[in-house]
Amino acid sequence: MARSKQQKRKFNILEHELVPRHEIVPPDEAIRILRELGVKPEQLPWIRVTDPVVRAIGAKPGDIIRIYRKSPTAGEIVVYRYVVGY
């Protein structure tokens, strides 16, 4: 999607310092990750489809999202969230 820089400024929330990097995990990789962690998808922390970040990256319910959090103790850590409906 082309980012239109028009007079009415639309701020991209993904650029906010509080928002860590989110990305959708491809299905085959998701299966591998779930097996590695030994959990069912719904046992992961959830994130709602209505979440502004989920909308911004266009994820759908059932997707798994990888998040690169900034951690004060470990630098950067990777966590996963499971996209749930409503």
């Binding site: 929330i13 906010h16 928002v19 502004p52």
Partner: peptide
Amino acid sequence: DPTRTITNNIHEIEEVLGIEAARAA
């Protein structure tokens, strides 16, 4: 500067910036 502006209202952050931002806040 929209990348650094913050509020102390956690629910507002959740609504505008998402759950991960709310957690960080």
